[in-house]
C-alpha cells in the first residue's frame, strides 16, 4: 500500500493519498482464507486481480474518504456447483465522518454456469445510504441471455444486505427446444418461440414467481413425444394419459399458453394450454390439450449438478 500524506497533526488537517497496486486475488484468498467468515467457505477464486486508489481528507473532526476499488478478470466458483467467469467491477465510493456513503460504478459479468449457462449482466449501479445498515443499491435496467433467449429486468432499487425486490421480468425469444434440452426426457422433442412476463418477488434468499405467463409466437410450434415403455404402459391403464399420448405423437400447435408459479421451496406449477392438431390422429381434428405439471425445480437443479458429480460407486449402488 503506497501512502503520500501531508497532514498537520495539531489541528489535525491535511490529506493522505493512497494507492494499492494490482495484486492477485487468488494468492490473497489462500493467504487470508482462515480469516474469512465461515459463510465464505464455499468460495474459491481461480483468477482475477484487484487494485485501489483514493484519498482521505481530514479537517478537525470531519473527514472525507474517496476510494476507487477495481476488480478485473475475476473468475470464481461457489460450492463446486456454480462457476462465474469474466467478472470486472469499477466503482468510486465516498464516505464521511457520519458514515454517509455515496458511490457509483459498473459491473460486467461474462458468464455464469450453474446447471444452466447465463451470459451477462452488464449493469451500472449507484450506492447511497448510511453504513452499516441503511444502504440503497440502484441498478440500471439490464438483461441476461439464457437458452438463446433474453431475460430483461427493469431498473431496481433495494438494500443489498436484506434485498426485497418486487419486479416483472420480461422474457423473449426462448426456444422450447432449449428448455426441453435442459432436462432431456427420452423421446421428447419440441420447438417454438416463447415470450412473456414473470412477476418475481425476492425477499432475502426466498424467490417467488406468481402467475408468470409465456406465450408462443405467431408461428406456433410442434411437440413430438415417443413414450418410454413405462409411460406407454401407463397409457394403457389410464384413458386420459392415452389420449394425451396420442395427441402428442406429433402435435402442431398454433398456441401454447404457459402459466407458471414458483415457490421459495422450489415447487413449480406449470399450466400448459395447447391448441393445435395432430395430422396422424383423428384426421387432424382440432385438439385443446391442458397439461398441468408439478415439479420441484430445486430438485431438478440438484439433479443437473449431480449428473456430473456423483461418483460411480454411488451410481452403481443404485443400479443394483
Amino acid at each position: 500500500l503506497n501512502l503520500k500524506a501531508n497532514v498537520d497533526l495539531s489541528k489535525p488537517h491535511g490529506r493522505i493519498n493512497f494507492n494499492l497496486p494490482a495484486f492477485s486475488l487468488q494468492q490473497a484468498m489462500s493467504l487470508y482464507a482462515p480469516l474469512l467468515p465461515a459463510s465464505l467457505k464455499p468460495l474459491q477464486i481461480q483468477s482475477g486481480s484487484t487494485e485501489m486508489n483514493g484519498w482521505l481528507a481530514i479537517n478537525y473532526q470531519d473527514w472525507h474518504l474517496k476510494a476507487s476499488p477495481r476488480l478485473s478478470d475475476l473468475s470464481l466458483s461457489w460450492d463446486e456447483t456454480t462457476q462465474v467467469q469474466g467478472v470486472s467491477l469499477t466503482t468510486d465510493l465516498e464516505l464521511n465522518q457520519s458514515f454517509n456513503l455515496t458511490g457509483q460504478g459498473s459491473l460486467d459479468v461474462q458468464q455464469t454456469d450453474s446447471g444452466i449457462r447465463i451470459y451477462g449482466p452488464r449493469v451500472d449501479f449507484k450506492l447511497n445510504g448510511q453504513l452499516p445498515e441503511e444502504i440503497q443499491l440502484s441498478l440500471s435496467p439490464f438483461s441476461l441471455s439464457v437458452l438463446d433467449g433474453i431475460i430483461a429486468l427493469p431498473a431496481l432499487t433495494f438494500n443489498p444486505l436484506h434485498p426485497t425486490i418486487d419486479t416483472r421480468v420480461a422474457v423473449a425469444a426462448l426456444d422450447l427446444q432449449d428448455i426441453l434440452a435442459l432436462y432431456p426426457q427420452e423421446g421428447l422433442y419440441g420447438s417454438g418461440m416463447l415470450g412473456g412476463e414473470l412477476p418475481i418477488r425476492i425477499d432475502g434468499d426466498r424467490v417467488e414467481i406468481n402467475n408468470g405467463q409465456l406465450l408462443s409466437s405467431a408461428e406456433g410450434g410442434v411437440i413430438r413425444y415417443q413414450p418410454t415403455p413405462e409411460i406407454a404402459l401407463m397409457g394403457q391403464q389410464n384413458p386420459g394419459v392415452k389420449m394425451a399420448l396420442n395427441a402428442l405423437t406429433d402435435l402442431r400447435f398454433e398456441l401454447l399458453d404457459l402459466g407458471f408459479d414458483y415457490q421459495p421451496d422450489g415447487d413449480a406449477f406449470f399450466r400448459a394450454r395447447l391448441k393445435g392438431y395432430n395430422p396422424d390422429w383423428q384426421q387432424g381434428r382440432p385438439i385443446d390439450l391442458n397439461l398441468n405439471i408439478e415439479e420441484n425445480l430445486l430438485d431438478l437443479w440438484r439433479t443437473l449438478q449431480l449428473s456430473n458429480q456423483v461418483t460411480d460407486t454411488i451410481d452403481r449402488r443404485f443400479q443394483r
Binding site: 482464507a33 467457505k41 474459491q44
Partner: peptide, 18 residues
C-alpha cells in the same frame, strides 16, 4: 451409508485449499 458416503463426498469437495 448412502447418507454418509454422499455427505463425505460433498464435505471433501467443499474443503478449502490447505
Amino acid at each position: 451409508d448412502i447418507m454418509e458416503l454422499r455427505t463425505g463426498q460433498r464435505l471433501q469437495e467443499r474443503a478449502p485449499a490447505g
